[in-house]
Design a protein around this nucleic acid. Structure first.
Length: 557
RNA sequence: GCGCUCGUAGCUCAGUGGACAGAGCACCUGACUUCGGAUCAGGCGGUCGGGGGUUCGAAUCCCUCCGGGCGCGCCA
């Protein structure tokens, strides 16, 4: 890669300059290259002279000039280095470096943009993990999109990725008790009995649907069953049904998990008890007021938390400690949890628990995403599962489609409190930028099809006259294509999947620009072939970007 | 009250300490006898919430104030 060559060249220049005494001895800096927005600033720019000016006690411009003077000869595609502005090094490359990226794209195909930087690492990414008390909602959609695409990105740079869903089905869950009782009441109501709903019941329509299903399947089998048997049974029926619905909801959104981990299993396998035992043995637990406490205040948290209540029952903190121990023990080198910002106060607690268990808390990354602010008809929509007024993700998918839904979630960064105007998203689907990007892909497919039927023989990029691609719009397009691997890398490093949606829109834009100004078919044969190779490259990269986003790249629309 | 977080164009949002702060929508004006007009070009629109500070350089880092969201259980 040309970037690496440039970085090495700059380091070499610094080394030589220091040897010659042109600049003082310095420790090797991190060289950052960027593709300047403004083309006048070259193909790549480097700010090393600016950042080193302080330590070197030299004027930035003077330092830049020195680096320029000591640059080695014959670096890859490098044509010349200019100094601009306050002391930027601007690298101008020979045109064929851009044209040759088509070779790389063609060679790499679906893996262009991918890398092998993290092949020895295994990451477990846990996301959504909503309580099994209702369908997956639009609000969960953000975590679903974020986690799934981050998983794709991590896999693209070499991680072995597992996606996991944590099912909060613990025995001491009051919510599930209420859900079971609600379902039981709905069931009896379906049989014509006048039974009241329990207090704090789940009022959603979906509970009635579940009840109808049970009646259809089992009739009045449970009509006379006493509450102490009926409630636990219906709690289980409800939980199982909700989990399977959630699984379906997420699959409809294009998210598939490698593992669905039950909290209850951690209790059944005594992992919770063992985790508490481990914490005690390591001296991070103590008894007070009849309860067992985690000494989290000495592990970076503000206060201590209860692991075992005075009534003998473990808390969710204990369960989560066990869960994360379980994750580490399965051999993962990195754990990523995606949580809503409403759980931010819990991060320190979890990290403390991990440390108390003897694991490295820095190997567990918690990515917080801000809440989604739902708006409908100009008014805030506050969804509550209890009240049954949440907006199911399925409903959104049914109205706008999976692609548009995913893309929309990924337009904003995780730490923006995004406003989601349901009317806008649903009614103006054509204004969703996903179509703009997909249109570019379909348009290219159409040209390629037409070219073939016009009996222009498409040739591999290696066989076409790439040097004919010198039109400004062609160079813009090539530059954008060449930038894709950097973009993927940046999206991974910053845990920022939303960068991909923006990249794909920019790529689509430069393609549409190219299309407006340059004809492909009907030009002189060699130019047509070169341009066909160019748009094939663009099509491939659009496809790769969309594929990372879990969005389809249609041949026609 | 304490803590976390966000505040960028009329609206929705980008912006890895860098060069004149960008895009989409909305609004206005243009562009097809030719490869897909779900497109393209141009215009309008900003004290980057306010004020200090660090830096050669701040939307970005630090402090403070203002405003919004969230969290502060032997609930999960």
């Amino acid at each position: 890669m040309i970037q690496e060559e440039l970085v090495a060249a700059v380091l070499e220049a610094l080394k030589r300059a220091q040897k010659e005494g042109a600049i003082p001895e310095l420790s090797a800096p991190t060289i950052l290259l960027e593709m300047p927005r403004n083309k006048e600033h070259g193909d790549y720019a480097c700010n090393v002279a600016l950042s080193l000016a302080g330590p070197a006690k030299m004027a930035p411009k003077k330092l830049a000039e020195t680096i320029q003077r000591f640059m080695p000869e014959g670096v890859g595609y490098l044509e010349r280095v200019d100094i601009a502005g306050p002391g930027f090094l601007n690298f101008y490359l020979k045109p064929d470096w851009l044209q040759d990226t088509l070779l790389e794209i063609e060679e790499m195909g679906d893996t262009f943009g991918h890398s092998q930087k993290h092949t020895s690492e295994r990451v477990l990414i846990e996301f959504v993990s909503a309580n099994p008390t209702g369908p997956i909602s639009v609000v969960n959609g953000r975590a679903a999109a974020l986690g799934d695409v981050l998983g794709n990105l991590l896999a693209a740079v070499g991680y072995e990725v597992s996606r996991e869903y944590y099912i909060n089905d613990a025995l001491n869950s009051h919510q599930l008790e209420v859900l079971g009782e609600t379902l039981a009441a709905r069931y009896l109501q379906q049989l014509g009995k006048d039974v009241p709903l329990p207090p704090e019941s789940y009022k959603g329509e979906y509970v009635i649907e579940m009840a109808k299903k049970i009646v259809k399947r089992e009739g009045n089998t449970y009509e006379e069953m006493p509450d102490n048997e009926l409630f636990p049974l219906f709690r289980r029926l409800a939980t199982d049904e909700m989990i399977s619905q959630q699984r379906g909801d997420l699959e409809a959104f294009g998210v598939r998990y490698d593992n669905w981990q039950c909290e209850s299993a951690l209790y059944e396998d005594e992992e919770v008890v063992q985790a508490i035992e481990t914490i005690s043995q390591r001296g991070y637990a103590y008894e007070k007021d009849g309860a067992v406490w985690l000494k989290s205040s000495v592990l970076g948290d503000k206060e201590d938390w209860v692991l075992v209540r005075s009534n003998g029952r473990e808390t969710y903190v204990a369960a989560d400690a066990a869960y994360h121990k379980n994750k580490f023990d399965r051999g993962y080198t990195l754990l990523i949890n995606i949580w809503g910002a409403d759980h931010h106060g819990y991060v320190a607690r979890l990290k403390a628990a991990i440390a108390a268990l003897g694991y490295d808390p820095s190997r567990c990354e918690v990515i917080l995403h801000q809440m989604i602010h739902l708006v409908r008809e100009g008014e805030s929509v506050v969804g509550s599962k209890r009240e049954g007024n949440i907006i199911p993700l399925r409903e959104l998918i049914a109205e706008v489609g999976r692609d548009a839904a995913r893309f929309t979630f990924l337009l904003s960064s995780a730490d923006t409190t995004a406003t989601f105007d349901l009317d806008l998203v649903k009614q103006q689907t054509n204004e969703n930028p996903v179509f703009y990007v997909q249109y570019a892909h379909a348009r290219i497919a159409s040209i390629l099809k037409k070219a073939t039927s016009n009996e222009v023989v498409p040739a591999p990029a290696a066989k076409v006259k790439r040097s004919l691609l010198t039109h400004p719009r062609e160079l813009d397009l090539l530059r954008k294509l060449a930038d894709f691997p950097n973009e993927v890398q940046a999206a991974v490093e910053n845990r920022a999947p939303h960068r991909l949606t923006h990249y794909s829109m920019e790529l689509a834009a430069v393609f549409h620009n190219f299309y407006t100004e340059c004809r492909v078919i009907g030009e002189e044969v060699e130019l047509t072939q070169a341009r066909l190779a160019l748009i094939r490259g663009a099509k491939q990269v659009l496809k790769n970007a969309l594929s990372l986003l879990g969005v389809s790249a249609p041949e026609s629309m």
